[in-house]
């Protein structure tokens, strides 16, 4: 009787776990990444005068575990000293060809060094090896207006780069074990009326990176 109960509870737990974790993207028949627009909030498309030529803030080469090499460049707008963001353009190159360019006028901030123990950190982003051929890049948007900054994920796979996730969320923690990397997100701003009283509750979310896939989990 006891054993049957344990099995039932275990099955229930597994089903909940399966239900709660949703893949953020899928694959086409050819094996290409197919993004899900519900996870990608578009960037604003503002045009500003005098922001070119962009200023290079960071550039480096990344290799997958199988040896494919990508070049990552991050640029800041010109004449942007009094405006938000450490950098505003992300460019991914493969074999000297630009395979992805993202532009965000609100900008991204340099990547926090508070998570170096659980994620490979560079000046502008964090990196996770998702499998032998796949890399995930994590960028954090600018903090402005007391709103959660954007959490931006790019997947590099088979010479291509795809924006798979762009949502507003504070990164509260990044945890890593032998199987997965878990990014703990807080989707809203908690306001305090005073030192002891919150006016609302935090809404948590997380991203789980494992086995060649990124999952969204409540």
């Amino acid at each position: 009787m006891k054993l049957r109960n344990i099995v039932w509870v275990g099955m229930l737990f597994l089903s909940l776990l399966t239900y709660a974790q949703k893949p953020v993207y899928s694959f086409s028949d050819k094996g290409d990444i197919v993004t899900n627009s519900s996870y990608i909030k578009p960037f604003d498309t503002c045009t500003f005068k005098g922001v070119t030529p962009y200023i290079m803030k960071f550039e480096n080469m990344l290799k997958t575990l199988s040896g494919q090499t990508y070049e990552i460049r991050c640029y800041k707008y010109n004449n942007w000293e009094n405006d938000p963001g450490d950098f505003h353009v992300i460019e991914v190159r493969y074999n000297n060809n630009v395979v992805l360019t993202l532009e965000n006028p609100e900008g991204w901030d340099f990547f926090s060094q508070d998570f170096v123990s659980s994620i490979m950190s560079y000046l502008c982003y964090g990196k996770v090896d998702l499998d032998e051929n796949t890399i995930v890049l994590l960028f954090t948007g600018t903090n402005i207006m007391s709103q959660p900054p954007y959490c931006t994920l790019i997947v590099l796979k088979e010479g291509k780069a795809s924006l798979i996730y762009n949502q507003q969320a504070f990164i509260n923690d990044i945890q890593k074990n032998n199987i997965l990397t878990r990014i703990v997100l807080q989707r809203n701003t908690v306001e305090w009326l005073n030192e002891n009283t919150q006016s609302n509750k935090p809404e948590y979310d997380s991203l789980i990176l494992k086995s060649g896939m990124v999952y969204s989990a409540k």
Binding site: C46, S146, F170
Partner: peptide, 29 residues
């Protein structure tokens, strides 16, 4: 540049902000 003109300065204690005297263009989008 983003606000296309002169902007005032703020004291801001918002998210990751703890300063006095930076432009309001860094406080509000």
């Amino acid at each position: 540049t983003s606000w296309d003109g002169k902007v005032p300065l703020t004291m801001d204690t918002g998210s990751n902000k703890r300063y006095v005297g930076k432009p309001i263009s860094q406080s509000f989008s």
